Amino acid sequence: MKTLPLLCCAALLAALPASARADNLYRGGSFPSLATDLRASQVGDLVTVIIYQRSSATTTAQQSSNKRTDLQGDLDVGGIDEGGRLRIGGGYAGRGEARRSEQLATTISVSVSAILPNGDFLVEGRHDMLVNGEKTLIGLRGRVRPQDIGNGNVILSSRIADAQIEYDGKGYVSRSAKPGLINRIFSFLGLG
């Protein structure tokens, strides 16, 4: 009768699930922290870039010149009294001004294309859109420090070194915004 309780205990222990070992629960590199966001860390990872570029420039040139030359002479011989006067003068005044203002605000996802020896990321990406026959291209290339990537894996374009931002459009709207052939010829000749 003593063997019956021992057999029951042995069967009960065999029916219990096997214990889990700690090294099976945690695998390094694949256990995300519960309090932080995932951020780009290797080639192929994506980063969201908020592009906000604003620039304005004004150039003004003003020039004026004035020149005056007077030449005067008198001749008095006998009964002849003659006088002469010559006055030459001229002036020029010119003014030119050019103003330019641009603003671009958009969001684009780019991928890490390389990791530099100092740990910086080379990122690049492009976004092509076709809306109502108007094709728009947004491209970005530059160098990112990993510590500049914020929460949500987002970085501002102002924090990208050596940034090359391309924004171009082709289509009906772009064509109609350009001057016509005659205006371009006059502008080339300095007449318009």
Score class of each variant (00 low, 15 high):
residue 109 S to F: 10
residue 99 R to C: 01
residue 30 S to M: 10
residue 186 F to E: 12
residue 142 G to H: 06
residue 163 A to G: 04
residue 146 P to H: 04
residue 31 F to H: 13
residue 43 V to E: 11
residue 86 L to E: 13
residue 67 K to N: 14
residue 125 G to H: 05
residue 41 S to H: 09
residue 80 I to D: 00
residue 114 A to N: 07
residue 66 N to M: 08
residue 118 N to Q: 06
residue 182 I to F: 10
residue 37 D to I: 01
residue 110 V to G: 01
residue 150 G to A: 12
residue 113 S to P: 01
residue 111 S to R: 09
residue 176 S to N: 12
residue 26 Y to W: 09
residue 29 G to Q: 09
residue 141 R to F: 02
residue 85 R to K: 15
residue 63 Q to F: 12
residue 178 K to R: 14
residue 20 A to E: 12
residue 178 K to C: 04
residue 67 K to E: 11
residue 30 S to D: 12
residue 7 L to H: 09
residue 21 R to F: 07
residue 168 D to A: 13
residue 68 R to G: 06
residue 24 N to D: 15
residue 137 L to W: 03
residue 165 I to H: 05
residue 150 G to T: 04
residue 83 G to C: 13
residue 157 S to Y: 00
residue 6 L to N: 12
residue 163 A to S: 07
residue 83 G to N: 15
residue 150 G to E: 10
residue 92 Y to D: 14
residue 33 S to T: 07
residue 103 Q to V: 08
residue 119 G to P: 02
residue 126 R to H: 15
residue 179 P to G: 09
residue 157 S to G: 08
residue 132 N to V: 04
residue 118 N to A: 02
residue 133 G to E: 07
residue 43 V to L: 00
residue 137 L to S: 09
residue 164 Q to Y: 04
residue 26 Y to A: 05
residue 155 I to V: 14
residue 159 R to F: 01
residue 139 G to R: 08
residue 33 S to W: 04
residue 56 S to N: 07
residue 45 D to V: 11
residue 56 S to E: 10
residue 97 E to D: 13
residue 188 F to S: 08
residue 173 V to D: 07
residue 97 E to W: 09
residue 144 V to W: 02
residue 133 G to P: 01
residue 156 L to F: 06
residue 95 R to W: 07
residue 16 L to E: 10
residue 94 G to H: 10
residue 147 Q to H: 07
residue 162 D to L: 05
residue 52 Y to R: 00
residue 155 I to P: 00
residue 46 L to Q: 10
residue 16 L to S: 06
residue 179 P to I: 11
residue 144 V to P: 00
residue 112 V to M: 04
residue 127 H to G: 02
residue 56 S to G: 08
residue 62 Q to P: 08
residue 82 E to M: 15
residue 186 F to L: 14
residue 55 S to Q: 14
residue 32 P to V: 09
residue 161 A to F: 05
residue 50 I to R: 04
residue 138 I to T: 13
residue 142 G to M: 05
residue 94 G to Q: 13
residue 154 V to S: 01
residue 53 Q to W: 03
residue 54 R to N: 07
residue 42 Q to T: 11
residue 94 G to P: 00
residue 140 L to K: 03
residue 164 Q to M: 11
residue 35 A to E: 06
residue 158 S to E: 00
residue 45 D to W: 11
residue 39 R to L: 09
residue 108 I to F: 10
residue 86 L to V: 15
residue 93 A to T: 15
residue 86 L to G: 15
residue 139 G to V: 02
residue 26 Y to P: 04
residue 8 C to V: 14
residue 39 R to T: 02
residue 154 V to G: 02
residue 35 A to F: 06
residue 76 D to Y: 08
residue 178 K to L: 15
residue 22 A to P: 04
residue 190 G to S: 03
residue 172 Y to A: 12
residue 152 G to H: 01
residue 23 D to F: 10
residue 1 M to G: 09
residue 136 T to A: 08
residue 51 I to F: 03
residue 90 G to R: 09
residue 176 S to I: 10
residue 30 S to I: 10
residue 18 A to F: 05
residue 110 V to Y: 10
residue 121 F to S: 04
residue 104 L to G: 01
residue 167 Y to T: 06
residue 146 P to G: 04
